[in-house]
Design a protein around this nucleic acid. Structure first.
Length: 601
RNA sequence: GGCCUGGUAGCUCAGUUGGUUAGAGCGCCGCCCUGUCACGGCGGAGGUCGUGGGUUCAAGUCCCAUCCAGGUCGCCA
């Protein structure tokens, strides 16, 4: 060890001790005969003092030449700062009177400043990620990430989970996310797929008798990226045998409670609120409702029939629905201009329009009701509406009239837009957890005109719904559950099918016949036929979880080396082309034009 | 794949209806300063305005194409 303490460690208790610190130069203030240097490491910041009278001319000169991000080793004596202490620093009561200085390494002038105050764009940060990682915000995020994983592993260990690794090179399975493919050198023309999740392996581990499995699993999906999506990401993956929904939900929320307690010192309620998928969709227009604010969606289809507003009435006649939400006391914020942009917002989601009414006075008076939809509504319908939506002065009402699916999606998105942006009702440190459970097993796809698995095709239906598999698959509900936090799905899972007969029936309803099932998932059906225990599990999206805990704006801020939106690594400058020889060895021919020298900036 | 925003000094940005030599703050370089702490003072350097083409007497500014970054819809069972 070439240091005795870290840069965040020293306090008044160490006064008069001789210490050696190592770290990076954050900042220097050269006063001539006395030079101050702020020395930084991941632990904090300590002020060094180079007084020519104390440290001598040689060390003083050397200190005078030190620049940002040079790496120094300094030995000196801890002194009290007395009246000059800096309350902004944890080490602000003391400073080090340097006796000797060794420059461990010089540094090029960094492209951006490392301190708390610097504002840097993402392009520069990603290109110089090794410097970005020195910034306190990044260090805090990655250290929290470590502590969360440590907490999760300890929690699972206490609950008898066994951590087992599964392959990332595995078999391509159809459905779900697009896979990254890896060509096989030894099997010309054949490919591995990078695992999009360890789903089937963990079920096989249950058949293998491991009872309770845990993995911090890297997953790969070749889909377009978002603010909260990366091509490779990490799941906290769990699976348990001899349990039912309540057991695994108990373990999942116990883990969340333990993490919030340990990392944030916050005691979350027990148990978490629960809601069926159907209730979530009807009331919040979302399968992951943000409960930090109210604004429930109210069913008005029966009211619409007699409302007098022909647009609503026609919607009902064509088997649609009418629902509304009330943005309480928002008329000041929601200007005509903003309402117009919200109409465009709704149209962008596929709505034909967005009817709204502003209440600009006593709601019992007709003239208070303003807006395109207001004058078309009969007097009786208006007072009925006032009662149902609990209308008060200053409220703004929004209506959706369309198919059930469209109304859910438009009013659901509108509710989030109002709550999180326009009306600013959501705080980042307000933790509203809930479970959304019992989603439909199948989802109708308009595009392919077939039923598809809503979760994945290994999800167990409720036993009493199994007879509906052949006749009315849309009514079959699944033993599935998602953990939702502030409008984000942070984890999800299900009870799995554990007998091969049921598994085949579920495949059948998806249009997968016996032969196809054998070809694609034969290994699973085979395993289920050898005494598979009842089992189920869930997986948490670690990156998203850390993003929320640290209140980060992007998933890239909680990953050490992330990719850009087009899947590039700006620091490594990858992906890159390979040589013809490499392709030949892998039995591949590239159909892409040869990349030329990079264009543009 | 669609839509939106952006790309100007090392960084963060400004740049008017197209008009002389493209600016600011921070950083950087030099000098001064023994109590600073986002130190201060004086002086200085630094630009292919992402790239390519077009319109024009004249383009950072207008048009077309393209690359890159971000956001979003589709997609992510």
């Amino acid at each position: 060890m070439i240091r005795t303490h870290t840069c965040g460690q020293l306090r008044a208790a160490e006064i008069d001790q001789t210490v050696t610190l190592c770290g990076w130069v954050l900042n220097y203030r050269d006063q001539g005969g006395i030079i101050f240097i702020d020395l930084r490491d991941r632990d904090g910041l300590t002020q060094l003092v180079f007084d020519r009278e104390v440290c001598g001319a040689e060390a003083h000169d050397l200190a005078g030449h030190a620049r940002s991000e040079w790496v120094l080793q300094v030995t000196g004596v801890v002194k009290s700062r007395g009246e000059r202490k800096n309350p902004k620093l944890a080490t602000g009561e003391i400073e080090i009177f340097a006796k000797s200085l060794i420059v461990l390494n010089r540094a090029e002038t960094p492209p951006f400043e490392i301190g708390e105050h610097s504002r840097v764009g993402e392009e520069a940060r990603l290109k110089y990620r090794f410097l970005d990682l020195r910034r306190p915000a990044m260090q805090r995020n990655l250290i929290i990430r470590h502590r969360v994983l440590k907490t999760v592993r300890d929690y699972c260990d206490h609950h008898r989970f066994v951590e087992i690794e599964t392959p990332t090179l595995c078999k391509y399975t159809p459905g779900g996310a697009r896979n990254f493919l890896v060509p096989s050198r030894m099997h010309p023309g054949s490919f591995y797929a990078l695992a999009e999740s360890p789903q089937l392996f963990k079920q096989l581990l249950m058949v293998g008798g491991y009872d309770r499995y845990l993995q911090v699993a890297r997953c790969y999906r070749d889909e377009d990226l978002r603010n909260d999506r990366q091509p490779e990401f990490t799941q906290i993956d769990l699976e348990m045998s001899f349990i039912d929904m309540d057991d695994i939900m108990g373990i999942g929320e116990g883990m969340a409670r333990e993490v919030w307690r340990t990392i944030l010192g916050i005691e979350l309620p027990a148990p978490f609120r629960r809601m069926t998928w159907t209730e979530a969709m009807l009331t919040y227009g979302s399968d992951k409702p943000d409960l930090r604010y109210g604004m429930p969606i109210i069913e008005l289809s029966d009211w619409a029939v007699t409302s007098g507003f022909s647009v609503f009435q026609r919607s009902i006649e064509s088997k649609g629905v009418v629902r509304a939400l009330n943005a309480k006391r928002s008329s000041d914020v929601l200007s005509r201009r903003t309402l117009d942009s919200l109409t465009e917002f709704a149209k962008g989601l596929g709505a034909k329009g967005l009817a709204w009414i502003k209440i600009l006075g006593d709601p019992s008076k007709a003239e208070s009701w303003q807006g395109p939809a207001a004058k078309n509504i009969t007097e009786a319908a208006r007072s009925d509406l006032a009662r149902r939506l609990e209308v008060g002065e200053g409220d703004v009402l929004f209506f959706g009239a369309d198919s059930n699916k469209m109304v859910c999606s438009v009013l659901g998105a509108l509710r989030v837009e109002l709550g999180t942006k326009l009306l600013n009702l959501a705080r980042g440190d307000d933790w509203q957890f809930l479970w959304v459970h019992s989603a439909p097993l199948y989802e109708w796809s308009e595009e392919s005109q077939t039923w598809g698995a809503n979760h994945h095709p290994f999800t167990a239906p409720y036993a009493e719904h199994i007879p509906l598999l052949g006749s009315d698959p849309g009514k079959v509900l699944s033993k599935s559950y998602d953990m939702v936090l502030n409008g984000n799905e942070i984890g999800g899972g299900s009870i799995r099918i554990h007998d091969s007969a049921t598994q085949e029936r579920v495949f059948q309803a998806l249009g997968i016949d016996h032969e196809e099932a054998q070809r694609k998932f034969g290994f699973l059906l085979h395993a289920l036929s050898y005494g598979a225990p009842p089992h189920g599990g869930m997986a948490f999206g670690l990156d998203r979880l850390i993003m929320l805990i640290t209140q980060s704006e992007s998933i890239r801020d909680v990953i050490a080396f992330p990719k850009t939106q087009r899947g590039r690594d700006e620091m490594l400058d990858c992906p890159t082309p390979v040589t013809d020889r490499q392709l030949k060895e892998l039995h591949l021919v590239s159909a892409a034009a040869k990349p030329t020298a990079a264009q543009g900036g």
